[in-house]
Amino acid sequence: MIWYTGLVLAVAVERLAELGVALRNTRWSTARGGTESGRGHYPAMVALHTGLLAGCLAEVLLTGRPFVPWFGWTMVAVVVSAQALRWWCVATLGPRWNTRVIVVPGLPLVSGGPYRWLRHPNYVAVAAEGLALPLVHGAWITAAVFTLLNTALMTVRIRCEEAALSGAAAPRAPRASRTAGGADVRA
């Protein structure tokens, strides 16, 4: 359980790093006329992602769930892969990446990196991590509840992003992906 607590705390530290990047990028975007959309769902997103981390530890502690090596290590690999995908998104979007939906008018839509293949790759990372992190140590209730609530939240979030992008982006090439930065807090 000690190493699992360390893993969850490492993810929490990663979340704090994301917030630092997001704050810097918010300043960059607003200095260029960026406007925020979807402020209403942001507190729910923060609460959900904080709840995920707390739920992982609480469920394992309260239920005594065992670590099943073959499954747990597979889920660790999914968590690590999700982190790699997330930071690939951050690197690809550069100063346009954010945990909030902030669009700078006139910038072309991003079509490189993981956006070449997926419309919202950061949300794929969020979904994978939200399922896998609790399952590393058998916290299946936390995994199920997070996945259900995250699906509802991402439906709202993606609609918000698409609406914000539809009127703000410069003309794009036919295959360009559409993303405002698509993070989540943590998202």
Rank of each mutant, 00 (worst) to 15 (best):
P174G: 09
A170Q: 11
S166Q: 07
N98L: 02
P134R: 02
L149H: 00
L133W: 03
A163P: 00
N122I: 08
M154I: 12
G94D: 11
W140K: 03
V104I: 15
P171N: 04
L131S: 03
A168G: 14
L165R: 12
G167D: 06
T142N: 03
Y115T: 06
R175F: 07
T147L: 13
Y115H: 10
T142K: 00
G130Q: 05
P121S: 13
G94A: 14
G167W: 00
L148N: 07
T99K: 04
V145N: 00
V156R: 13
W117C: 02
P121Y: 13
R175H: 11
V136E: 08
W87N: 01
R119A: 08
R100W: 15
A164V: 04
T142A: 09
A125M: 08
N150Q: 14
G106A: 01
P121M: 13
I102Q: 01
R96F: 15
V156Y: 13
R175S: 11
E129W: 06
R172E: 11
S166F: 00
P95L: 13
R116W: 07
P174R: 06
G113R: 10
N122Q: 07
L85H: 06
G106Q: 01
A139F: 00
F146N: 00
L85D: 02
S166T: 07
L131I: 15
R96V: 12
W87A: 01
A164M: 02
V90N: 04
R86L: 12
L93A: 09
R86E: 07
G130C: 07
V90S: 05
L107I: 09
A84N: 05
A168N: 07
L148G: 11
A132M: 06
R157P: 07
V104K: 10
R157Y: 11
E129Q: 15
W88R: 06
A125G: 04
I141Q: 01
A128T: 01
L153E: 01
T155D: 08
Y115V: 08
W88P: 00
C89F: 04
A91D: 12
I102T: 03
P134E: 06
V101A: 04
P108L: 09
G112Q: 09
I158N: 03
A170S: 14
A169L: 04
V124N: 00
L118R: 04
L109M: 09
V101H: 05
V90D: 04
L118W: 11
V110Y: 02
A163M: 02
H120W: 01
P171S: 05
R96D: 15
A143I: 05
L131C: 09
Y123E: 05
A164L: 02
T151G: 09
N98I: 03
E162Q: 14
L131F: 13
H137E: 03
G113P: 10
A125E: 02
Q83F: 13
S111V: 11
S166L: 04
Q83K: 10
N150C: 12
A144Q: 13
T92Y: 05
W140V: 07
